[in-house]
């Protein structure tokens, strides 16, 4: 059984200017201990999906439609608020792009680490503090006793992200949602954090929903990948298959638009144009206007996400035509 299932999730926001369809009919799943990478550009709906899963979308501005988000077989969308709270931080944990804004500036690192331990694990304050120091050491910070007494502004971005990870793993969650966990960090620090996440995952058999715009990070960490564009999943598959044999023109465009070390080209194969306005998405395929393989009916009809082989799905008429 899958640990996490998104079943035709749709999220829309009512704004002054109209309805923004942030996420439309998104389905994917994560098996226990598996890392699913969700990749896409800003506004593609990847973060909104994660927030929906955490029950953190602002209501009533956000309207959630579609069947369900299931975690361990339970539907999260109908779960009462207090049960959802029990689940959050305990079985599902989350780390963010900006660790500084996710931590409370007036509490010490140790105090913030103790909170979930006392709330979810029912530890005594003294035991919780000892556990907090152990966690700080676990995420590779030297001098844990000293850092536990420090406040967020005294630590660097990389250290704070380690603290966030320590907080996330404190209750041994079954699922970790990592929303752009290394985007705000320097390259050498990013390498440290990726290494740490890889280690933790191996050790704790923790499933991960890795949200990022960086295909490099995906290639380093993910088992399977879902590519999102304008609120929909356009391609999904095992990481090797997707990088070796990308079928959606958008996935190909993304891969081609990053320079590859050692392979020197005169020009990058940039995707022309812009992401469509989420207020007025075209009736057909949202990528059609930028697509080099556009066919006549792409702008009118929307391709469904169809299975190509084993676990590789794509939403594109051109890709279907080739395989048929």
């Amino acid at each position: 059984m899958k640990l996490l299932e998104f079943d035709q999730l749709s999220v829309a926001f009512d704004t002054e200017a109209g309805t923004v369809r942030a996420v439309q009919d998104v389905s994917f799943d994560v098996a226990a201990g598996e890392v699913l990478g969700v990749v896409g550009e800003s506004g593609c709906g990847k973060s909104v999906s994660a927030l929906a899963l955490m029950g953190l979308l602002p209501r009533p501005a956000a309207r959630i439609a579609g069947s369900a988000i299931r975690f361990g077989g339970r539907s999260l969308l109908d779960l009462p608020a207090d049960e959802l709270r029990q689940l959050r931080g305990n079985e599902i944990a989350m780390i963010f792009q900006e660790p500084m804004s996710a931590l409370n500036p007036v509490l010490s690192i140790g105090e913030q680490l103790c909170e979930p331990l006392i709330a979810h694990r029912r530890l005594t304050p003294r035991a919780a503090w000892a556990q907090a120091e152990a966690l700080i050491a676990r995420v590779g910070i030297a001098r844990p006793a000293e850092i536990a007494r420090a406040f967020p502004h005294q630590l660097s971005g990389g250290m704070l992200q380690r603290v966030m990870i320590a907080m996330a793993i404190s209750c041994a969650p079954r699922l970790l949602i990592a929303d752009e966990p290394t985007t705000a960090l320097d390259v050498t620090i990013q390498a440290q954090i990726l290494e740490l996440l890889r280690e933790l995952r191996r050790e704790q058999q923790m499933a991960m929903l890795l949200i990022t715009h960086d295909l490099g990070v995906i290639a380093e960490l993910a088992d399977r990948v879902a590519v999102m564009y304008a609120g929909r999943v356009v391609e999904q598959g095992p990481v090797r298959e997707l990088f070796r044999n990308p079928r959606h023109p958008y996935t190909r465009g993304l891969l081609a638009s990053r320079p590859v070390p050692g392979r020197r080209l005169a020009r990058l194969a940039a995707i022309p144009g812009q992401v469509p306005d989420p207020l007025s998405l075209p009736p057909g395929c949202a990528f059609a206007a930028r697509c080099p393989e556009r066919r006549t009916d792409c702008e009118q009809r929307r391709p469904a996400l169809r299975r190509l082989d084993a676990d590789h799905r794509v939403a594109c008429f051109a890709a279907e035509g080739v395989s048929a």
Partner: peptide
């Protein structure tokens, strides 16, 4: 060596 490469 720290740059993540888009190749699994």
């Amino acid at each position: 060596s720290a740059v993540p490469v888009a190749d699994p």
